[in-house]
Amino acid sequence: MPEPLLEVRDLRIRFGRFTAVDGLSFALGPGEVLGVVGESGSGKSVSMLAVLGLIRTPGAHVSGNIVFRGRELLGLKDAEMRSVRGREIAMIFQDPMTALTPVYTVGWQIAEQIRAHEKVSARAARDRAVRLLDEVGIPSPERRVDAYPHEFSGGMRQRAVIAMALSCNPALLIADEPTTALDVTTQAQILDLMRRLRADHGSAIVMITHDMGVVSEIADEVLVMYGGRAVERGARRQVFHTPRHPYTWGLLDSVPRVRGPRARRLPAIPGAPGAAERGCPFADRCAHRFAPCDEAPPLTPTGDPGHLDACWLPEDRRRTR
C-alpha cells in the first residue's frame, strides 16, 4: 500500500467515564472510499469528528494518532487545524435541512469557505460558487446562487452542502450519513453525484452510514464498528461475500434480499445497542457467545489477506454466506 492519506492509530475518545471510541485503527489511501458502518452510538461519527478536531464537549478526552499526509493532527493548534478543515479535509453532515446558516444565501456561504482559505476576490469566489453549484447539478446556478437555504429542497440543499465541501478541492471528504435524511430517489442521485465527483476530483471519501446498501454502492473498503470498536475490516467484496463477524452477519441479514424467497420478517439483532461492560463489546447480543468472549478480541487477520475481524470464534463455527 502506498503512503496512506489518513492513518488513524489506536484512537480513544472518552467523555468523562464513558468510552465512546476504544482503540480504533484504520488507514485510507488517496482516492479510496471507506465505508464506516455501525448503528447509532457505535462511535463512527464521533471518531470522524475527532479527525477534524471538532469534538468540543467539555471533559472529552481524545488520544491516539491521527496522521494525515504524514502530519499528526491530534494536538495541532486551533489555527493550524483551521487550515486543514474545509481545505484539506471537508465534512458533510447528515441533515441538509439544518446544515446551512438560514440567514445567508447559499452562494455567500460557499464563497465564505473559499475566501477563508484562499486569497481571492469576492467576485471570483462567487463565480466559483456558481460553477460548483452547476457541477453538483443545481439547475440555473447563476440564479440559485443568490437563493437562501429555505428556498431549496432537501436534495438541493445536500447538493449545495456537497458543493461547499468540494469548494477547496479537499483530499479527503468525510460524509456523515449524507443520504439518511433524504428520500430514496434523492439518495440515489446524491450517491451518483458523489461517485462522479470522486472520479473528477480524486478525493478520498469516508462514508459514515448505517445503511449497508449505501456501503455496497460506493465503498472500496468497509469498516464495521460496534460499541466504539472496529469489529471487522476489509475490502467491500470480502465483507459482503464472506463476512466474518457475527455483528456483520446480523447487519447483512437485516437487509431485505431482492432474489430468493421473501422472508416473512427480517431477522433482527436481539437486544439494544450498547457495548458490554468488559470483554467483546458485542457479547451480550451475540448468539455465538462462548467462554473466551469475556476477554475483548483484538482486530486480527483471520480470513483472506487484508480482511480483519475481532472475534474469537474458531474457523469451523464461522458462517459462510
Binding site: 487550515s83 478543515r85 474545509g86 446544515a99 446558516t101 438560514p102 440567514v103 482559505h117 461547499m164
Partner: peptide, 25 residues
C-alpha cells in the same frame, strides 16, 4: 445548531463562527 458545526468544519475562525453565524441568528 448544525449550521454552526458546518461553519466550524469549513475552517472558519471561532470568532467568525460566533459573530457571523451564531450571533447573527
Amino acid at each position: 445548531e448544525d449550521y454552526v458545526r458546518t461553519a466550524r468544519a469549513k475552517g472558519l475562525s471561532e470568532r467568525r463562527v460566533l459573530l457571523r453565524h451564531a450571533l447573527r441568528c
